Simulated scan of single mutants.
Amino acid sequence: MTPAERHGLWFGVAGVAIFALTLPMTRLAVGTPEAPLMSGMFVALGRAAVAGALSVLFLLVDRAPLPRRSEWRALAITSGGVVFGFPVCTSIAMRHVEAVHASVIIGVLPLATALVGALLHRQRPSRAFWACAAVGSVLVAAFAVLRSGSALRAQAADALLLAAILFAAVGYAWGGRLSQRMRAEHVICWALVLALPVSVPLAFWTRPQVPLPTGAWLGFAYVCVFSMWIGFFAWYRGLALGGTVRVSQVQLVQPFLSMMFAVPLLHERLDAMSVGFALAVIATVFVGRRMPVGRASAPPVLAPAVESR
C-alpha cells in the first residue's frame, strides 16, 4: 500500500466514523414520542441551511469556479437526494425508532449505492450482484417486520428509512459522477448552496418555539457541521487518495459504529437479533460489492443504407 493509499484509507475511516454518529445524534435532537424535542423537519432543513452557509464561505475562500451549465442538473439531483431526501426521511423516522434499529436498515445503503451507480454509468450488474441486492433487501424487510410488529408509527418510520436509502443512493451516485469532473468538496458545497433558497426559509418556519435542553442542540450542531459538511470532505478525499474500491469497503463497519455510539449516548441496548441481522446485511453487502459489474453492450452501429438507383 502506497502512502497516498494509506492516507486515503484513514480519511475514509474518519468519514465513516463521522457518518456513523449521524443517526444517534439525530435521535438526540428529535427526542422520543414520550419526550419530543426538535421536529424532524427542522433538524433536516436546519442542518442543510447551516451547512449551506458554511459552504458559501468555503467556496468564496477557495475561489471555486461556478459549475458549468451542464452540471446544474446533476447538482440538483444530488441535492434532492443527500440534502433533502435522506435527512428529511431519517430525521422524521428517528423519533419513532431507536438508532440501533435504524442502523441495521440503513446498513444496506452501500449496496443500493453501488446498484444505482451501476445503472447510472450504464453498467450491467451480474446475476450474482442482483441476487445479493435481493437478499439484502429481504433481510432488511424481514428485520423491519419482526421489529415493528403492528405499531403503525414504527412501520411508517421503517418506510421512511427505506425511502432514505433510495434518496441517499441516488444522491451519492450522482455526486460521485460529478466528482469525476469537479473537486469532490465543491460538489457537496454547491449542492448545499443550491438548496439554500428552500432550506433557509423552511428551517426558520419550523424552528423550535420552546426552550430545549443542551443535548438536543449539541445533536443538531453535530449533524449540521459534521454529518452534512465535514464528513463529506473526509469521505470524498479518502476515495480520491485511496481509490473507491479499497476505501469504500470501510463503510461495512458503519452500522456497528452507529450501534456502539448509540449505547453510551442514548442508553440503548444491543440485542442478539439486531446484531445478527446487522452481520447478515454486512455480509451480503461485502459479497455483493465483489460481484462482477460489466459494461452494457453498446448499440450496434448501423451501416449506411445503400441509395437505390
Rank of each mutant, 00 (worst) to 15 (best):
A102V: 10
I105E: 02
I106Y: 02
G107Q: 12
V108A: 13
V108C: 02
L111H: 04
L111M: 11
T113K: 02
T113L: 01
A114C: 01
G117T: 14
A118S: 14
L120T: 09
R122N: 13
R122V: 12
R124I: 09
P125N: 09
P125M: 07
S126R: 08
R127T: 14
C132T: 15
A133G: 03
A133N: 05
A133V: 05
A134V: 09
V138N: 00
V140T: 09
A141I: 11
A141N: 02
F143M: 05
V145W: 02
R147A: 04
R147H: 12
A151G: 09
R153I: 03
A156V: 13
D158H: 02
L160F: 10
L161A: 01
F167W: 14
Y172H: 12
G176S: 09
G176W: 01
L178T: 12
Q180T: 06
A184Q: 10
A184S: 11
H186M: 00
I188C: 08
L192H: 03
A195W: 06
L196S: 08
V198L: 15
L202R: 07
T206W: 13
T206H: 10
P211A: 11
T214I: 09
A216M: 11
A216W: 01
L218R: 09
Y222G: 06
V223G: 08
V223P: 09
V225R: 01
F233K: 03
F233N: 13
W235K: 07
W235Y: 13
G242D: 12
